[in-house]
Write a protein that binds this DNA or RNA. Sequence first.
DNA 1: ACAGGCATGTAAATAGTTACATGATTCG
DNA 2: CGAATCATGTAACTATTTACATGCCTGT
Lengths: 182, 182
Amino acid sequence: MEQLSATAYVILGLVRNEPRSGYEIKAVVDNSTRFFWAASYGQIYPELKRLAEAGLIAGSDVPTGGRKRTVYEITADGEEELRAWLRQAPQTFEMRDEGLLKLFFADALPRDEAVEILRSMKAQRLAINERLRAIEQMKGEIEDPFPMIVLRGGLEFSEWFADWCERMEAQLLDSALEKRSE
Amino acid sequence: MEQLSATAYVILGLVRNEPRSGYEIKAVVDNSTRFFWAASYGQIYPELKRLAEAGLIAGSDVPTGGRKRTVYEITADGEEELRAWLRQAPQTFEMRDEGLLKLFFADALPRDEAVEILRSMKAQRLAINERLRAIEQMKGEIEDPFPMIVLRGGLEFSEWFADWCERMEAQLLDSALEKRSE
DNA sequence: ACAGGCATGTAAATAGTTACATGATTCG
DNA sequence: CGAATCATGTAACTATTTACATGCCTGT
């Protein structure tokens, strides 16, 4: 079998906890992994088919009320595949942050407008922080500690980032002041 | 004119400082923006043509020695376009971190193997930190303070991240100990 | 009745990487 | 001379998003 995509492992990992439908997987992703690994319907549904064909997950019809619904559960092969992947050292770690990109080029703007970039970035991070806090509240007691570790990491990260924006804003305003008093 | 891609603004921002060839742009990206916004030859060269056609940059033949070479400089229109973009609040901020993804699913592994994920992640972040430090050393004195602000932000971030990995590793080992003593 | 959520899916477009082709020049 | 680097480019592939289509069910 060819290499599986990272999205495939997101699915394997999520259906390992409990059987889920494509729709549910998308909902869970949007409240958990999407902060460090997103996935859209356009990836999830085709991937579910591929994984089922490869025998790594198994789908069965489990309607909710009268509503048609296919839930997938992981197979023994799927679990082995997931564990094999988990054992390999992680490779990909990318960031695409338009705020940092704009800040990098901010010399093209007057100082007071450059500072605005930092303010936007801080607001974004605080919004994410609130979002994560809401998710943290929702979670009850569960045995698996890892999702909570990662969630708390996200909280700490967004706090660090917001704080950094604040400090850099202050630094910029300070240096503007210095220049004026020279 | 249609919406420009983020890569287009990377190019506009870089050629604004000084005229550069596609090859040089790629090299600069790899030592600066690629930590928060990457770009490959497959994006850069076609984008240079588009931007030149749109009149936002202008290319001219400037051979190095006998070696053919086209350098691009920003036009007045290009600078206006760049500034207009910089003034809009940043939208995109994504992360794809395979380490966090694996950690999220680490319950599928025995604890001692789960801890390995954190060790790999820490090593990765320390490697990035060293890389950034090397870049910091290289930079001489320049008037534009923003690239250095962003670089220092990257240094602080990688340090925070490595430290977080260390703390989480300790926490995991502690909780494993607790379980044993119950 | 109708809005909103549940549910599955696909088409088209955009984004981005990788690998390759080509060829000149410089340095050891 | 040979390796590395400068330099430009493209083709093929993979990834990913967006938007849409479809239709049922539930609650107000």
